[in-house]
């Protein structure tokens, strides 16, 4: 789309778009291309020699039990993070929306975890869940009677990174749910109330369906968040361990590429991730179009 009134100039528009194009080409397209090429090569760890091997890296990847396990880990992790943070975000936003006098104060008190780096959230939760010093760990041991130890036990470590990742994401979801709730016309709620629908009934039959676009959007964003941005949490507190229990896909790309120096496999993993995110984005755009029709 272009404006009805526009400027005519020979060089200026090229000059203006140039920085963006140069950076995009250098740091997006060229690396993406290199990644794809590298994923078809088998090279020694020093990168001196490489051999074209077609899809060997991909085949090796999808027959590697460690990679399949990592896919499973990532799925469990991202679904859990999305579910926990969506539930809390929606719950708190609904409550805050009811407490009309206090909305601004509540918002201030809930918004700041957004600014906390994932890695820092990880450090705080590591302390809270630390097997010897953590206060939450103490509570878990006492109430559930389990021998809590995220340093040695894979499941416990997974629970720890889920908590650290979901905690940070609550405020993000809260902001969007809050905006979604405030956009719901009051008249709808009032009409339902006059027909005798209880607050809970109104929430289920009016609020939730009207929030579904927000809900879908946030699910996608939360899954993308837990796929990629949680790298900091994992690198600071578990390093993919114990025994690969928290080795999610993006961490494996880093480990295989930069620590293990298995360049071909790491590149193939990058390409897989890239395709995955393109798929998710395409899906989302398809949905956004639907949303436009829905609201008219």
């Amino acid at each position: 789309m272009i404006k009805r009134a526009f400027f005519k100039s020979k060089f200026l528009p090229y000059l203006l778009i140039l920085p963006q194009i140069v950076i995009t080409l250098t740091f997006f397209y060229w690396p993406a291309l290199q990644g794809i090429i590298q994923s078809t090569l088998l090279s020694d760890p020093f990168g001196r020699q490489s051999k074209f091997v077609w899809f060997y890296n991909y085949i090796a990847l999808f027959t590697d039990p460690l990679y399949l396990k990592s896919i499973f880990t990532t799925l469990v992790f991202s679904l859990a993070v999305a579910a926990v943070s969506l539930f809390f975000g929606l719950f708190i936003a609904t409550m805050a929306n009811r407490a009309l006098q206090a909305t601004a104060v509540v918002r201030t008190m809930l918004i700041w975890p957004y600014a906390v780096a994932p890695a820092i959230s990880g450090i705080m939760w590591l302390f809270l869940l630390h097997p010897s010093y953590g206060v939450v760990a103490l509570g878990i041991k006492k109430w559930f009677g389990v021998n809590w130890n995220p340093v040695l036990n894979g499941t416990d470590a997974m629970v720890m990174i889920i908590m650290a990742s979901a905690w940070k994401q609550i405020s993000y979801n809260f902001v969007f749910f809050m905006a979604g709730l405030q956009a719901i016309p009051k008249s709808l709620i009032e009409a339902a109330a006059m027909d005798g629908a209880s607050p809970f009934r109104r929430f289920v039959t009016i609020t939730l369906p009207l929030l579904s676009p927000t809900f879908f959007f946030l699910s996608v964003m939360n899954i993308i968040y837990s796929f990629f941005e949680t790298f900091g949490i994992i690198h600071t507190i578990t390093q993919g361990g114990p025994g690969g229990a928290t080795n999610i896909l993006v961490y494996k790309v880093y480990q295989d590429g930069f620590v293990g120096l298995n360049l071909g496999s790491s590149a193939a993993q990058s390409v897989v991730l890239m395709s995955l995110i393109i798929l998710i984005t395409a899906l989302q755009f398809k949905f956004v179009e639907k949303k436009v029709q829905y609201t008219g």
Partner: peptide, 29 residues
Amino acid sequence: VYFDYRFRAVAFASVFCTLMLPVEVRILP
């Protein structure tokens, strides 16, 4: 938005395609 030139659509499309592609998926290259 404010100029009309030959590669306008191409420029926009090429930038637009990188939407959502975080640095994490292409770290090594």
